[in-house]
Design a binder for these strands. Structure first.
Lengths: 214, 214
DNA sequence: TAGATTGTTAATCGATTAACAATC
DNA sequence: TAGATTGTTAATCGATTAACAATC
């Protein structure tokens, strides 16, 4: 086994943010940046930036800082933006349609392969160039299409059922939009987007602010 | 000033999750639970549960555990589910419409007051019982409606402009769906939902798994 | 009462920040 | 070269876990 240093999830979660800031710098035509300058822009410490980056390698140069384009590429590689994951969307309601129209995902290496639903009102309709497919045809579809990720935008009670079904069909990653913690007994990576959790945290913070300003 | 212990954001972020699990227990008709039993269900330590809860008060009873309904209510109060925040949605595209149809928010104390857009195709259309209002009428609307939170579902380049505008109109909280970190110079609480960041973390984890299984 | 389980203090672990030698 | 800034080690801080006395 190779010498393997486990990268903490705290670091991983900051990578997309670095990537965004570096994209912005590129657009601004800024070619080099120091950890100090970036720390001011991002509102974190320069120390943390250097520590984070050095988990993956020495991307900078003493006395100079970091080359923006190079660092942007390196972080892109770490995040796998060139790796091309295929994904499907299950559930073509508003959330599913919103995701199907997110063009940003493709820039980051995620390719939409199909959109599925059970409703005959939706099946056959075109969403962002993709005809909604009958969920009954999922098995057939997955036999002839390389799909790594399923985004689950189905009703609450359907979520665990659909999750289990796609996991058995070889899907390796799930992006879950239902307000539940999926526990499926397969070797699948799950990333939850708990919107109402996020909103409740906002509500808590608002209440705190109101209390303190009284 | 009162003796005030600052609650860490790590604890706050776990509260909605406790709330969900307790709701589930209630639905299952379970009336009491120990930190041990809950820890198994949630996949965290019993110690952490007790520590978290004791930031806010002693909700349990030695030898017995926690009364599910009581604890559910207490956490609900901490999160302010009875406090009734008014919110508006700005941008009635797919994401805005998806949010307008989320009935869960109301159960948690968030009341939809209005949906806004600039597109004449959308203005006047009904979404979940709310007629889409011309964004030009925002100022007038806010004069006669108590609104605490704005959910921003507008295009990338419009986001900071709209954020600034609503902040000046007295909105206290922003729920931001654009892939940028809002920096507005007002006393406003911002909660970001960076969907592509979340997806990229999923992509990273998938790559790691593939590497390790080779 | 005896058993169970909390509330809370103490120990450990991990993440962030500070400091500085290395070096461009 | 002198100045700037990284890479990296050490110190600090905060969060999680363990332990146990208190008590229902």
């Amino acid at each position: 086994m190779s010498v393997y240093k486990k990268i903490s999830i705290a670091v991983i979660k900051r990578l997309p943010r670095y990537y965004r800031y570096l994209s912005d710098l590129l657009k601004l035509g800024i070619t080099r940046i120091s950890s100090k300058e970036l720390s001011i822009r991002m509102g974190i410490t320069a120390s943390q930036i250097r520590q984070d980056l050095n988990c993956f390698g020495g991307f900078g140069q003493q006395g100079y800082g970091y080359n923006v384009e190079y660092l942007h590429n390196e972080i892109g590689n770490i995040l796998g933006v060139n790796d091309k994951f295929g994904y499907i969307i299950i559930g073509a309601g508003n959330m599913g349609q919103a995701l199907a129209n997110y063009t940003n995902f493709e820039k980051r290496g995620f390719i939409l392969k199909g959109v599925f639903d059970v409703s005959s009102d939706l099946i056959g309709q075109k969403i962002n160039g993709h005809e909604v497919i009958d969920l009954n045809n999922l098995e057939t579809f997955l036999k002839s299409n390389k799909v790594d990720i399923a985004m689950l935008c189905v009703p609450y009670d359907q979520t665990p059922i659909v999750a289990d079904r796609v996991a058995r069909l070889g899907i390796k990653g799930l992006w879950n939009f239902s307000p539940m913690d999926l526990k499926i007994p397969h070797d699948v990576i799950i990333e939850n987007v708990h919107l109402s959790d996020s909103l409740m945290v906002l509500g808590y913070k608002l209440n705190e602010k109101l209390k303190n300003s009284q």
